[in-house]
């Protein structure tokens, strides 16, 4: 069963709907003891990374998240929280994976936010990208991206610059796109995580 960290950063109806369509059981994590109820954890998030980090800190769940040994999946801003730092609001984040979240530099040739379907290329044989071919399209909506890193990048994407569409370190996985809105490919990724 999957536990969703419920810290108030964005609407999770689409995510829970996707899990229901896939018959994946889930529940909500509201306090530290709830982590024991689930085998896997999802950290969702939309909006401002700094504001999301503040909400997560206020929830009191940060030490428990950092100590997790179970598989964890961060989605969108939930992914960015797992990195060390974001240029958005000059914010220090969870620092679980030592990478930086940077802003897309505004150029007329590449619009910001990066919104729509873009292709990803799995790297480093990360199991969450199992059965997902290079060049598969996923749905992205974001203005900040996580830098490419040969060690921690689990999938790349190109938008004027090559960035991390997915990252992994040990039991921590994260994706920048929205698997719950990415058609069958997104459902495959959620299944991969549920089956880890």
């Amino acid at each position: 069963m999957i536990g969703i960290v419920n810290y108030g950063a964005g609407n999770i109806f689409s995510l829970t709907s996707a899990l229901e369509r896939l018959n994946i059981q889930y529940g909500m994590i509201n306090q530290e003891s709830d982590f024991d109820l689930y085998e896997k954890i999802i950290i969702p998030g939309v909006g401002h990374a700094g504001a999301a980090m503040q909400k997560l800190t206020e929830s009191g769940l940060v030490p428990a998240i950092k100590a997790l040994k179970k598989p964890v999946l961060g989605i969108c801003v939930g992914m960015q929280l797992i990195t060390s730092y974001s240029e958005e609001g000059d914010s220090n984040l969870l620092d679980i994976i030592p990478l930086k979240t940077l802003r897309f530099k505004e150029e007329i040739s590449h619009k910001v936010p990066h919104m729509g379907w873009n292709q990803i290329y799995p790297e480093n044989d990360s199991p969450i990208f199992s059965k997902i071919a290079p060049g598969t399209y996923f749905y992205f909506v974001h203005s900040y991206f996580i830098e490419f890193n040969p060690k921690f990048t689990a999938a790349t994407c190109n938008y004027g610059i090559k960035f991390s569409a997915g990252i992994q370190k040990d039991n921590f996985y994260a994706v920048q796109f929205h698997p719950e809105k990415s058609g069958e490919a997104g459902e495959q990724l959620l299944k991969n995580f549920a089956n880890l």
Partner: peptide, 11 residues
Amino acid sequence: VKAVARQVNIP
């Protein structure tokens, strides 16, 4: 809107 969000996997 809820019914669509429950069933549909695109934005």
